[in-house]
Design a protein around this nucleic acid. Structure first.
Length: 265
DNA sequence: TCGCCTGTTCGGCT
DNA sequence: CAGCCGAACAGGCG
């Protein structure tokens, strides 16, 4: 479930497990995630070790002892997994890094939208992707200035990774719900106050998601996300306001949930 | 069986 | 050229 908070938890997980072990082999079960040749991966990784991690938005980086970085991008369904025994291996492992201690770090990814890429120059890479600062670090002034210029639906504008890196589909919906803004309003028509509010609720949503490890059932009662995916059928799909059902529309090609009563403009 | 899906990229418009 | 939009990628799941 990889938006910024999920990827941050993945980063902590990998940092706590897979660093400082010599890589003894790279097993490529499916080469699709590899952005360079398998030979280049073997050469860059085998007999080296991961020594550090970094993250910008949804992009997770593992630093090698050579100074080169390995990017893991999780796409829609990817996740890092760390295991030793075959029976603990998940079902959709694409690429597996075997470590000297007998454990393996792998990219598990049913839908195969994930990517692994060798990145010699991190700064140049981020620039080439036009990636903004991480959403946890973007200043209110930068956020307001950039968002206020976009001519498209605010929902789509929030998903641009050159606005604030790491905002994904559910976070955008949650931000708009908490700010009481309709997802199809054009971003450049928002007031300065609305733009500032969006920056504030972004920080709040990220904080909550990190605290609860994106376990939506534990989210505060005022959060739309809690109802969107509620297990409890009695509240599933309701607005937290309790007065109506959430509506689903498509904005910029993405499923978008909002409350027709709470988000009127 | 059909529709849905938490991300990114690319071709084609305007 | 910049911004915007829709389609495409792939496959499990309810």
């Amino acid at each position: 479930m990889p938006e910024l908070p999920e990827v941050e938890w993945y980063r902590r997980y990998v940092e706590g497990t897979a660093l400082n072990q010599r890589i003894t082999a790279v097993n490529v079960r499916d080469a699709k995630p590899l952005q360079q040749s398998e030979e280049e991966f073997q050469q860059a990784l085998v007999d080296h070790q991961f020594v550090d991690t970094d993250r910008v938005g949804k992009y997770f980086f593992l630093k090698l002892d050579t100074g080169t970085w390995l990017l893991m991008h999780f796409g829609m369904t990817g996740e890092p997994v760390y295991y030793r025994d075959t029976e603990d291996e998940p079902r959709f492992v694409r690429v597996e890094f075997v470590l000297e201690n007998g454990f393996k770090l792998a990219l598990n990814d049913p839908r195969k939208f994930g990517k692994l890429e060798l990145v010699p120059d991190l700064e140049a890479f981020l620039k080439s992707k036009k990636l903004a600062e991480d959403a946890l670090k973007v200043t209110e002034a930068d956020f307001v200035a950039r968002l206020g210029k976009k001519k498209k639906a605010v929902k789509s504008a929030l998903l641009d990774q050159n606005l604030a890196a790491g905002i994904g589909n559910w976070i955008a919906d949650e931000m708009l719900y908490l700010a009481r803004i309709h997802p199809e309003v054009k971003a450049h028509t928002l007031t300065q106050e609305q733009l500032r509010t969006l920056h504030a609720v972004l920080q709040e949503v990220l904080e909550v998601a990190l605290e609860y490890e994106s376990d939506y059932d534990n989210f505060p009662d005022k959060y739309l996300t809690k109802y969107r995916w509620a297990e409890d059928k009695d509240i599933q799909g309701q607005c937290p306001c309790g007065k109506t059902q959430l509506e689903r529309i498509v904005v910029g090609g993405r499923g978008t949930y909002f409350c027709p009563l709470c988000q009127k403009n």
